[in-house]
């Protein structure tokens, strides 16, 4: 809760730190005098600073994140309209990263410092060090343009009016490249975590006992080592939600994916500050909620932890 208040306070300070009249930050530069007056009244900008702060907090608390002056609609509804596309992208990427990283991490952990381990660890670290937009650009150049296997940009084929299953397949085809690129950023974190978790876990006494009892390697890995080794992954996935969304934004711009990333780009180009502030607030709150959920899931999975 203090965190949420802090975030709103930072947004409020940003409006007032901006050079010129704060009404410009809230209403844009192209409004007329009457509109400025209206905004001044609505946000209480003609009153004292602490008073203004309370007004702003109350507005945000009631879900009023302001009006986009370019679109002439509430910023909250604009963001909600674009959120599903971003959610589809981030969700698929995360799923893909988890599915691929666990076997890779387990494979690397079989012989620590062996040649497979060094190759896998090196490859994921390289992916992790590359900017997301660059991987996206390379994927477009190599896979979409050179090989022509997948569409270059967008979410659906232009001028296509298909519906139902065909449309879903069309979206899926457009989703493959951006989701793969976004997943590659999460991959490194999850592979390294799985690997080091398994290496620690496999060296423990209860694993040796299981081996002595004649439990098969596969059963040891899946039943005895994985559950504890993967527990930290929950925390790390939760803690990285902010990075995941930031990555998605950039990848949406590379691939022309119509999510909040495109919305961010157009609002930057239009200098649509109310929409930008609303995006900042919505993403910040999402990160806070994700952290909270992470703690709850972690506590549910780990019997050693009880929530206070």
């Amino acid at each position: 809760m203090p965190t949420v208040l802090g975030i709103v306070l930072i947004a409020f300070l940003l409006i007032h730190l901006a050079p010129g009249d704060p009404v410009m930050a809230l209403a844009g530069e192209h409004g007329d005098a009457a509109y400025y007056e209206f905004m001044r009244e609505r946000f209480g900008l003609n009153r004292s600073l602490p008073d203004q702060m309370l007004t702003y907090f109350a507005r945000v608390a009631s879900g009023d994140l302001g009006m986009s002056y370019v679109h002439g609609r509430s910023t909250a509804s604009l963001i909600m309209e674009r959120a599903p596309a971003t959610l589809l992208l981030t969700g698929s990427a995360l799923l893909l990263a988890v599915i691929v990283s666990i076997p890779l991490g387990a494979f690397a952990a079989r012989r620590p410092h062996g040649s497979w381990d060094v190759s896998i660890s090196g490859a994921v670290l390289t992916l992790y060090s590359a900017p997301a937009f660059w991987l996206g650009q390379l994927a477009i150049l190599a896979i979409a343009l050179k090989l022509g296997w997948l569409p270059v940009q967008g979410m659906t084929t232009a001028g296509d009016t298909q519906s139902g299953i065909m449309r879903a397949l069309d979206v899926a085809r457009h989703l493959i490249l951006p989701a793969m690129v976004l997943a590659s950023q999460e991959l490194a974190v999850l592979v390294r975590l799985t690997r080091s978790g398994l290496i620690d876990e496999l060296a423990r006494d209860h694993i040796r006992t299981a081996r002595a009892k004649g439990v098969t390697d596969a059963a040891i890995l899946i039943r005895h080592a994985m559950p504890r080794a993967l527990l930290p992954a929950v925390t790390v996935i939760g803690a990285r939600v902010g990075q995941l969304i930031a990555g998605a934004v950039v990848i949406e711009i590379v691939f022309g994916w119509p999510g909040i990333g495109r919305l961010l780009l157009t609002s930057l180009q239009n200098r649509d500050t109310p929409l930008l502030l609303a995006l900042f607030l919505v993403v910040s709150f999402t990160v806070v909620v994700a952290n909270l959920l992470t703690d709850l899931v972690h506590a549910a999975l780990d019997p050693r932890i009880t929530l206070r």
């Binding site: 050079p19 902010g242 930031a246 500050t273 930008l276 993403v283 806070v288």
Partner: peptide, 24 residues
């Protein structure tokens, strides 16, 4: 530590985007 938590959850990419949009 409360301050640290606040600054840790701030999505830096969006914060930077807003700050640059407002301040140039």
């Amino acid at each position: 530590m409360r301050m640290t938590e606040l600054f840790q959850v701030l999505p830096r990419f969006f914060l930077a985007a807003v700050a640059i949009a407002l301040l140039g």
